[in-house]
Computed example of a mutant assay.
Amino acid sequence: MASRLPLLGRISKLLKAPPSTPLCSSRHSLALCFLLRKISTPNVSPWTFASPRSFCSGPLNLPQDSQGPAAIDYRSVLSEDEFHRLANSTIHDLQEKLEEYGDVVELDGFDVDYGNEVLTLKLGTLGTYVMNKQTPNRQIWLSSPISGPSRFDWDHNVRAWVYRRTKANLSKLLESELEQLCGKPVNLS
């Protein structure tokens, strides 16, 4: 810490120097001199020197009364009891059908496990699927070795769990991916 104090003192003096003071000498790099001159220039925003890789490249120009997207109250979408009934029914139905599918494909390392409200489908060297309920969001979350993470919401119109981003149906997505991985079709609907 003591070795840093002289350096911090010199930097502090350079930053306090008036704009007319020559800040550059043979001891300073050009980049440091440029930065020190710009910092000591009055009425210059510190954001002027932000990296071009920064997360925001300029003002958002939102109307003053804009408050951004409204939060979704998932309790109004499905009651908690209805969510649990639908999600449990879906997960238990998938568990039964996946266990039957495991007898058909005869894949080394194929295993279906359900515990602590998490359904896990292991496909040996092909990867692992994990499915669980997210009660606060009223969603079923799926982690897939092919498509990655997905969050499925109950769609009253189609009476199925649907991923809003891609409009994928949970059962249809699993059917497609399992056939692709294991080479045999499966009916999970």
Rank of each mutant, 00 (worst) to 15 (best):
P59E: 15
N61V: 02
N61S: 13
Q64L: 15
S66G: 09
S66P: 00
Q67N: 15
G68C: 07
G68T: 05
G68A: 02
A70E: 10
A70M: 08
A71L: 15
I72T: 12
R75Y: 05
S76W: 00
S76R: 12
S76N: 10
S76K: 13
L78M: 12
S79R: 09
S79Y: 10
E80D: 08
E80H: 01
D81C: 08
D81L: 12
D81A: 15
H84P: 02
H84A: 13
L86Q: 02
A87P: 09
N88W: 03
I91N: 00
I91K: 02
Q95A: 02
Q95V: 02
E96F: 00
K97N: 09
K97E: 00
E100W: 07
Y101K: 03
D103L: 12
D103V: 11
V105I: 14
L107V: 01
L107R: 08
L107K: 08
D111L: 13
V112E: 00
V112Q: 01
D113V: 02
D113Y: 01
Y114F: 15
G115H: 06
N116C: 08
E117C: 05
V118A: 13
L119E: 07
L121D: 04
G124F: 06
G127D: 04
T128D: 04
N132A: 03
K133S: 09
Q134H: 14
Q134D: 12
T135P: 06
P136D: 01
P136G: 06
R138K: 03
I140F: 06
S143Y: 03
I146M: 03
G148V: 03
S150V: 07
R151N: 10
R151D: 07
D155Q: 12
H156D: 10
H156C: 01
N157K: 10
V158F: 11
V158G: 11
R159Y: 06
W161G: 00
T166N: 12
T166F: 11
A168Y: 14
N169C: 12
N169T: 11
S171V: 06
S171C: 15
K172D: 15
K172P: 01
L173C: 10
L173M: 10
L174G: 12
